[in-house]
């Protein structure tokens, strides 16, 4: 049986890599990739904690709902990015600064 700590360390690593991608990359779609990675890391935790209580399926059920919501988020997020690209002709979030003062 795989110890639960292994899952937790794996998910912490994936989450931190996703966080680094969100902060470092300068493209809105790359930021979305990092977000998906972070959601996957959370899902690994849910499945791992379900292993400690195999008579219930709450963790796996929650993981499936997280996957559904993540798919919705990716679709709406990309629609917004496309519309912003059409208006500003760029997919770099830092250069879309109309609301910023000066």
């Amino acid at each position: 049986m795989i110890p639960i700590e292994n899952y937790l360390v794996l998910s912490a690593t994936l989450f931190s890599i996703g966080l680094m991608i969100v902060v470092i990359k300068r493209n809105a779609i790359a930021v979305l990739l990092g977000l998906e990675l972070m959601l996957n890391a959370a899902n690994i935790n849910l499945v791992a904690f379900n292993l400690a209580h195999p008579e219930r399926l709450d963790g796996q059920m929650f993981a499936v709902f997280v996957i559904i919501v993540a798919a919705c988020e990716a679709a709406v997020g990309l629609a917004i990015i496309l519309q912003a690209y059409r208006v500003f002709h760029t997919a770099v979030p830092d250069s879309i600064s109309t609301l910023k003062e000066s």
């Binding site: 700590e5 360390v9 690593t13 292993l51 195999p54």
Partner: peptide, 18 residues
């Protein structure tokens, strides 16, 4: 974030999978 999470996870005891 990685150091914080891994420290938290390794210190806590979560039991073994069944």
């Amino acid at each position: 974030a990685m150091g914080f999470l891994i420290t938290l996870f390794v210190r806590g005891s979560f039991g073994n999978g069944v």
